[in-house]
């Protein structure tokens, strides 16, 4: 009988401690994984954001293997900013049209030379006049020809960046 009473007393003592507690450790683990994923997937560099035109069809290329030229709309349709690099903080072209053309040719030929560059990518914002895009396109083609010489069978292509349209 004494043991029974002791059991009952133990039950009464433990009654307040038997509140069901949910183990939140797996939830915290998953939350941290999601947090790390979204931190890595987000783009913290505002200089890389380009308001590119949208298109349904396009192909994916590896940007690290591309020679990138940036055309940024400044609000003045006759004077977009041309950057030789993947970011708005890259080298900005100034001066006369001939100087800019020669700078693009030199940049493309030098970037293709000695590096594993497989593409020439022109990232132009959608509000830029097409004559400026064509100017860069033609200059980049000249730079590619200068690097190739007379050999045009390397498969290096010019690309224009677009944003995937979701329908």
């Amino acid at each position: 009988m004494d043991s029974s009473i002791e059991d009952l007393r133990r039950m009464r003592r433990n009654r307040g401690n038997e509140e069901p507690k949910m183990d939140i450790t797996p939830m915290i683990d998953v939350t941290f994984l999601l947090l790390i994923f979204f931190i890595v997937a987000s783009r913290p560099d505002p200089n890389r954001i380009i308001n590119a035109p949208q298109a349904k069809f396009g192909e994916s290329i590896v940007e690290s293997n591309a020679c990138i030229i940036l055309l940024v709309d400044t609000g003045n349709p006759d004077l977009p900013d041309i950057h030789l690099g993947p970011s708005k903080a890259a080298n900005k072209l100034t001066g006369a049209e001939e100087e800019m053309e020669q700078a693009i040719i030199d940049y493309v030929s030098q970037t293709l030379d000695g590096k594993r560059i497989k593409h020439v990518l022109i990232k132009a914002e959608k509000d830029v006049r097409y004559k400026h895009v064509h100017f860069v396109y033609a200059a980049a083609g000249d730079g590619l020809r200068a690097w190739l010489g007379d050999n045009e069978s390397t498969g290096i292509m010019l690309h224009t960046a677009v944003e995937e349209k979701k329908n």
């Binding site: 947090l35 994916s60 083609g141 995937e164």
Partner: peptide, 23 residues
């Protein structure tokens, strides 16, 4: 809070290209 912030601000827009042959 951090998770919600990064989920809202994440930009998953894929950058694609239109291929053009060199002139």
């Amino acid at each position: 809070l951090l998770l919600i912030f990064f989920m809202v601000t994440a930009n998953f827009t894929m950058m694609k290209t239109k291929r053009q042959p060199p002139p």
